[in-house]
Structures are given as C-alpha cells and as structure tokens.
Design a binder for these strands. Structure first.
Lengths: 181, 181
DNA sequence: CTTACCATGTAAGGCGTTACATGATTCA
DNA sequence: TGAATCATGTAACGCCTTACATGGTAAG
C-alpha cells in the first residue's frame, strides 16, 4: 500500500467531509483546491467507479427527481485508507512553470519578450489573489464552526504568501530586465 | 504550430546556449532547472532523436575515444522554432503540492500529523535554499560575461523569493496548528 | 425559448516516468 | 578492484487530458 493514486485520495478527502456527486467533486477542486491541485472529469468519474468497486466509497441515487444524481459517500474502509495515506510521507511536490522556462531561455528573444511574460504572469496572480483573500476572511470568521476550516485556512494562507512573493518578484524582475540594456 | 511539446523546447533552449549530450542535458535540468522543471532520460533521449529527424537539431559523434559521446547541436530551423515558442503566450503554469493536499484534508488525522508534514516541507526548503543563494552570488558576479546570465538570475531569484515565503508560511502554519487545541 | 449551467460518462491519444539493459571511465 | 559516475537507450505501463456524446434543469 505504498504509492496511493492521488486522484483516489483527493476524492476520498473531499468525501470525508461530505457526500458529493462527481460534478460537485470537480467543483470543489476548481474552487478550493485549484491553487495546488486539479483533475478533469475524465479522471474523476472512472476513479469514483473504481473506489466503489474497491469498497472505499458507496454510490446511491438521489431518488427525488426524474434525473437522478449519483451521490457518493466514503465508507469506513475508505476513511481508513485516507487516514493511512495522510500519515505517509509526502511523495512529491511539483512545480512546473512554463513562465519560468520561457524566462530562463529569454536571452534568445530579448528583454521585451521576457517582460511581456512577466506582465502576463503578474496579471494572472493579481486577478486570483482577491479570491484567496476573500476565502481567508470567511475561513477566519468560521474557524469555530468546523474543525476542518483551520486546515483549509492553512492552504489558503500558503497561496496568499506565495502570491505575494510572486508579485514582489515580478517588480524586481521587470526592473532588472529594463535597466541599462 | 500551436502547442509545442515542452520537452522539445527545453532541449532546444539548452542547446541554444551550447552543444550538449543527452546526459549533459539531464544534468543541466537537474541543477539549473530543477526548481521549476524536470524530465527523465526516458523522455530526453527519444525527444533528441525526434528533434534530429525534424531537422531542429543535429547529432554528431565526438570522434576522440572508443566510447563516442553523441553531441547534439541546434540548427537554424531549431533556433527559429525556439524563438517562435518563446513569443507565444504561456500555456500553463502548474503547481502540484502533495503537502498541501495532505494539509487540506488534515482534519481527518489531526494537528500532530499536519505539523509533521509542515516540518518535512520546511526541512526540504531549508536544504535547497543555500544552493539558490550560491547560484545568485555567482550569477550576479558574472552578469557581464554572458547576456544569458541575467535570465538565469531571474529564475533563481524567483526561487529565492518563493522559498522565503514558504519558510515564513511554515512558521505561521505551525503556530496556527499548535495554538489552543 | 434559449443560454447557461447541472450532470454523467467514454474513447483516443499524449506524455512521461520507472525499470530494465548495457557498458565505459575515473578515482580512491 | 570496486564504487561512483558517465553515457545511451528501450519497453511497459500509468495516469491524465481532450474531445466527444448526451441529456436535464433553471432563469431571463
């Protein structure tokens, strides 16, 4: 049980807090986890079926309407599996920034092109930072409502700090590129 | 020519500065690029053959010894391809930190486990930061030797700033987890 | 009534790692 | 002479995204 598939662990992690449909799982990822993790439907739905087969989750229909939603829940077995994975050491943290790649080889095209990439990067970060700050506000206020919120807050604050560092670096980098050239 | 394979661009980028063997390309990646990019031999060697087939690079043997090294060089065509890619907007910057995933779901195992993961993360960063600071020193001094050094310095300073932010966050996160619990 | 979002899934294909296989060279 | 490093490659496999396919529901 050494190398757990990450997609399984993410799904079980989300299900450990509440029952969800595949669609809702994707939504959670695209909002709460998007700053450090992502997955597509093409990996979520098959993973869900697989988790049910292995007895780590259950699937039931919301019998209410004509169009039934498929609601997934974690089992005890699934919760143990998740807990086990949580205690295991981190296997890999990975950062792949194409922006830095283009910058590293920037000498081939010159400063102007590099500055452009930095500005695009800067804009993207500036656009996303407010969402993180908003989430931080909400989580700080609701810290006592749910013990899980403390852990969510941690990851949000990671984002805020790194994004802050990114913006400082952008300024520095632009300056370095534009001086005496 | 919209979505260039990144492995091709990295290799061409490295070859744009100097002729290299496949082995040396891997070495460059593991030292200079490791903070924001990585690749294995299993992707480098096939990519090199492919670049030669497409006329973006050339391959020659260092005829000196019995055991001939295979030295790759960029062609004009390859340099144009690289330049083209450099001007294209960044397609995707991606961060996948398993540490943050384990932290996000940390409520399931509790604070002690989460603190462990933060400490491991912290140690890893503290171990790597000196290399970045060393590289920064060297690059600052040799800025006039090679116009490419300015671009290398940029990426090194990105690493230094983000690693600094990580360490600050680690302290904050540990504090938050250990207080009134 | 139509646009946007909710909702579930599959198939093909891309991309890359891991593990394996092989052998030379260098340095202690 | 043995270990570490240099050096090149292949094969199997895993994992994931993209694109496709389909239809329900809610709001304006």
């Amino acid at each position: 049980m050494a190398n757990e598939k990450k997609i399984d662990c993410v799904i079980l992690g989300l299900l450990s807090h509440e029952e969800l449909t595949g669609y809702e799982i994707k939504k959670r990822m695209d909002t709460m986890l998007k700053y450090f993790w992502s997955a597509s439907y093409g990996s979520i739905y098959p993973a869900l079926s697989d988790l049910v087969h292995r007895g780590l989750a259950t699937k039931r229909e919301s019998g209410e309407n004509k169009r039934n939603k498929l609601i997934y829940a974690i089992t005890d077995h699934g919760r143990n599996y998740l807990k086990e994975w949580l205690t295991l050491p981190v296997y890999k943290d990975e950062l792949r920034y194409e922006t830095l790649l283009k910058l590293f080889f920037g000498n081939e095209q010159g400063a102007e092109c590099a500055v452009h990439h930095i500005e695009s990067f800067e804009e993207k970060i500036e656009k996303e930072l407010p969402y993180l700050l908003g989430a931080q506000e909400i989580l700080k206020k609701s810290l006592n409502d749910d013990t899980a919120h403390k852990y969510y807050l941690l990851t949000v604050e990671f984002g805020i700090r790194t994004y802050g560092a990114y913006l400082e670096w952008c300024k520095e980098a632009r300056t370095l590129l534009m001086e005496n050239d």
